[in-house]
């Protein structure tokens, strides 16, 4: 058996009994036990972990760890996470009452995705991929309205580029403001009815987990 890790938490009670708690320093990892040969891409496992992740967030805010991180023992988890523990403690303490919300929208004028076959150099291809991703911008009307309606509710916000076809506004908001952010999303839809977007959350600390205050 091994542990498939979900997130890092401040308190053991933030993890148990929803998931298994692995102590790492003075923090706790949430995890589920899986067989050593269990495929991580298994649909049932993905859905199970997604459901546990949502339940854990109901209990307390945690640092999300990218899916796929496994450890054979608490000791292995400890040494693999050692470099992160101080930062996690810092953000978990600062943002215990905060969650992330995400507004995802299609890029207004997406640049074509670079074709690997057009590049002899892998580095040039990666640079072109990066440039295409960074050039994605939201519809100006939607962006202005989001900045007016959602950003004032956020402690921090950031426009992020994940690919050349979309752009996202990630906002760190107090749990008490989740309903207000959703209401702002409805107002945004009324103001920009022709611009497709998706407001989702709450999410754990994903985008802001690496922030150094």
């Amino acid at each position: 058996m091994k542990s498939l890790v979900i997130g890092a938490h401040l308190l053991r009670d933030d993890v148990e009994p929803v998931a298994q708690a692995l102590a790492v320093g003075d923090l706790y990892l949430s995890a589920v036990d899986i067989e050593n040969d269990q495929p991580l891409g298994d649909r049932e496992l993905l859905l199970r972990v997604a459901a546990i992740r949502a339940k854990l967030l109901d209990v307390a805010t945690f640092v999300a760890i990218r899916y796929g991180f496994t450890a054979g023992s608490a000791e292995e988890a400890q040494w693999k996470c050692a470099a992160h523990i101080a930062q996690w403690r810092r953000v978990l303490t600062a943002h215990r009452e905060h969650v992330e919300m995400t507004l995802k929208t299609a890029a207004a004028a997406p640049r074509a995705r670079p074709d690997r076959r057009d590049f002899t150099s892998g580095a040039d291809y990666l640079r072109a991929l990066h440039d295409a991703t960074q050039s994605a911008t939201a519809d100006p009307e939607l962006r202005a309205a989001a900045e007016e309606l959602i950003e004032p509710l956020a402690i921090k916000h950031r426009w992020i580029h994940r690919d050349e076809k979309s752009v996202e506004l990630a906002a760190l908001v107090p749990r008490a403001q989740i309903d207000a952010v959703n209401a702002a999303g409805a107002a945004l839809q009324a103001r920009c009815p022709d611009v497709p977007f998706m407001l989702s959350g709450p999410w754990p600390l994903e985008v802001f987990a690496d922030d150094h205050e």
């Binding site: 993905l46 999300a64 994940r162 994903e206």
Partner: peptide, 10 residues
């Protein structure tokens, strides 16, 4: 969010 977000452990 599960597959594409969160801290990547080195």
């Amino acid at each position: 969010h599960l597959l594409d977000r969160g801290v990547v452990i080195a």
